[in-house]
């Protein structure tokens, strides 16, 4: 079984899994404790517009999805805060508009759109080296920003009103956090695809909540959980010859279910 590790594509896949677990482990914790899962899902889906744009312009879709997802994050953040539209309504509308734009761009592009399914549902086994570098760069950016604003992000997650009264730039910090979510989504597109991203953002972080009482601890654990699940899913998908993205998600879901009795046993003892 270990001989598959010698394959170049397998090594790349493992590195990619690790890079994705770092991004989603860190940012997923904020997504879970701040309860912004639906806005994160909205940004992920709407980012499909950026994939479509890449096809239309003849670019690597990963490069066009990066500015597009950041723009989506900022628009969603501003619309849900500054207008009187209810937040979930705004998310729902932008979610669909982003996807519609993506389909429109793909439709306008002459010929067949190769790999479209890859961006929607991921394929960890076919990641180009170039994308791996980009993932690493985005990881570094995420780590740097979270290192710089860790305590402020904790504060706005815990109590936004009090942070406002403490004269923190709450709106700017919120937008920055949404932009970091957008970067995280871009890191994960190749692994599980836009549609399934939300599972990687939420499952490892919410399992880690059961075993840690502070955000740093949760982040470390959730990186570990994410890595284990991703690599386990990768091997299973290879052995069973099934799609890698969905195998990873299903492994995570089983992991989540298994942690519930474990948590109960821990609290009982």
């Amino acid at each position: 079984m270990l001989e598959i590790l010698q394959y170049q594509f397998m090594q790349t896949a493992i590195i990619a899994g690790l890079l994705a677990s770092i991004a989603c482990g860190i940012i997923g914790v904020y997504v879970v404790v701040k309860r912004i899962v639906s806005i994160s899902g909205g940004i992920a889906h709407a980012s499909f517009g950026g994939i479509g744009l890449g096809y239309y312009l003849g670019l690597n879709p990963i490069l066009s999805v990066l500015p597009f997802s950041i723009l989506t994050a900022v628009v969603m953040g501003l619309v849900s805060r500054r207008t009187k539209i209810a937040e979930d309504t705004a998310i729902g509308i932008l979610w669909a508009v982003g996807m519609a734009l993506g389909i429109m761009f793909v439709g306008l592009t002459p010929g067949y759109a190769p790999d479209l399914m890859t961006y929607l549902f991921g394929n960890i086994l076919t990641i180009p080296r170039m994308d791996l570098y980009l993932m690493a760069i985005l990881d570094v950016m995420i780590i740097v920003f979270v290192y710089l604003f860790y305590k402020e992000f904790v504060a706005i997650s815990f109590d936004e009103e009090f942070s406002e009264v403490s004269d923190l730039p709450v709106e700017k910090l919120n937008l920055l956090l949404l932009c970091l979510i957008a970067l995280t989504i871009v890191v994960m597109i190749r692994i599980v695809g836009l549609i399934l991203v939300i599972a990687l953002l939420t499952i490892p972080a919410s399992i880690s909540r059961s075993f840690s009482g502070n955000l740093i601890g949760m982040m470390k654990l959730s990186i570990a959980f994410g890595t284990v699940f991703t690599i386990l899913g990768l091997f299973l998908s290879y052995l069973l010859d099934v799609p890698s993205g969905s195998t990873i998600i299903l492994v995570m879901a089983i992991g989540y279910l298994l942690h519930i009795p474990l948590k109960k046993m821990m609290t009982a003892s």
């Binding site: 404790v33 309860r35 904790v154 815990f158 109590d159 840690s212 009482g213 955000l215 949760m218």
Partner: peptide, 8 residues
């Protein structure tokens, strides 16, 4: 005003 189960 705050999440009662917030890990902090």
């Amino acid at each position: 005003a705050y999440q009662p189960d917030f890990p902090v």
